[in-house]
């Protein structure tokens, strides 16, 4: 597999939330690479650290959270430890973000046009007319009908799908090189979800953006990204090209996830699903050694000793598990 020049390179990222008396680790040493123009899926269940990872890239992990260690490089430039001013210049301009809930991520008291204009004028010096023209152009680009009329609309006057389109227009307003999409369609109906995913794919092609799609939905991943990183309890546990991951999932957690969703390869309607026993652990109660060992049916004593490395098990296919043999 030829990999493009990495646009985003995250190494050993550790993010914790420091509450009175306890440290709650959210990300425990994540490595992640997104090449220019590439689409990567970051998959995991609630609390696995996938959203915190995205926020770290933008320098948006707020108190009491802190990036404890590691590096995040965007086009070769280190983002960790950057001054707030410099980070603001990165946000929106080089990295755009789309959130899950379009109702809460748009400000209800400002019009769509105002918020879109703000996204532009933060980074560019434009005349009023230019701003207006570009706003209309952006709304048209994300497929909003009658864009001139929508500029004066308030978020509450738009449907969920249209709001998410506005969010995407804001995120791509400054032509970022990387778009972080955190569960962009989870709050939407399936037919609208298909529209939004289609829109993201089109924009990626037209603008040459890289997209990091953060989701819990393996179906979305299978249909939309080229490479997948599976996270569990703050660690990346498996990484592979999408086709390889679904053809031969290696980590028991990935296998469990695939067995859990109806419609995955090998499941038939009416059969019992191969559910993973137990629950996602609270971040303060993750077991020692392999974080998945208490829910894993392959676990042996050695799993408790050390955290396995995320190492190549097949060509271009890495997994973090002692029980998976290496055939490289």
């Amino acid at each position: 597999m030829t990999r493009a020049e990495p646009l985003l390179q995250i190494e050993n990222l550790q993010v914790s939330f420091f509450l009175p008396g306890v440290e709650v680790p959210a990300v425990r040493g994540l490595d992640l690479v997104v090449g220019a123009g590439e689409t990567v899926g970051l998959v995991g269940e609630s609390g696995c650290g996938k959203s915190v990872t995205a926020l770290s890239v933008l320098g948006l992990v707020g108190d009491p959270g802190r990036v404890k260690a590691g590096s995040i490089r965007l086009g070769g430039r280190e983002l960790v430890g950057l001054a707030p001013r410099e980070l603001r210049a990165v946000r929106g301009r080089q990295v755009g973000m789309v959130f899950q809930e379009p109702m809460t991520s748009l400000n209800p008291v400002f019009t769509v046009g105002y918020q879109l204009a703000e996204a532009l004028t933060t980074h560019f010096d434009l005349s009023r007319q230019e701003v207006r023209d570009r706003c209309v152009g952006l709304l048209r680009e994300v497929g909003i009908p009658a864009p001139e009329d929508r500029l004066g609309a308030y978020p509450a006057q738009l449907s969920g799908g249209l709001r998410q389109r506005v969010m995407i227009a804001m995120a791509v307003a400054c032509r970022p090189r990387l778009l972080l999409a955190d569960e962009p369609t989870t709050a939407l109906d399936v037919t609208i979800q298909a529209q939004i995913m289609g829109l993201l794919a089109r924009l990626r092609r037209e603008l040459g953006m890289a997209v990091l799609l953060i989701t819990h939905d393996l179906g979305l991943v299978a249909q939309n990204v080229g490479r997948v990183v599976v996270m569990y309890a703050g660690h990346a546990v498996e990484e592979a090209a999408t086709a390889d991951l679904f053809a031969e999932p290696l980590h028991p957690y990935t296998r469990g996830l695939l067995g859990s969703i109806p419609g995955a390869p090998g499941t038939r309607p009416g059969d019992r699903l191969r559910a993973i026993p137990g629950n996602v652990p609270h971040p303060t109660r993750v077991p020692s050694g392999c974080p998945f060992r208490d829910r894993c049916d392959l676990a042996v004593d050695a799993c408790a000793d050390t955290l396995p490395e995320l190492e190549p098990k097949r060509p271009g296919h890495r997994a973090r598990c002692l029980r998976v043999d290496r055939r490289v």
């Binding site: 609208i192 979800q193 289609g198 299978a222 969703i261």
Partner: peptide, 20 residues
């Protein structure tokens, strides 16, 4: 519109226009 968790069955869905 349902994304199938199987990349081999990838397809271009016939996307419905408009909102409910």
């Amino acid at each position: 519109a349902v994304p199938v968790p199987d990349p081999d069955r990838r397809r271009e869905p016939r996307v419905l226009e408009g909102d409910v």
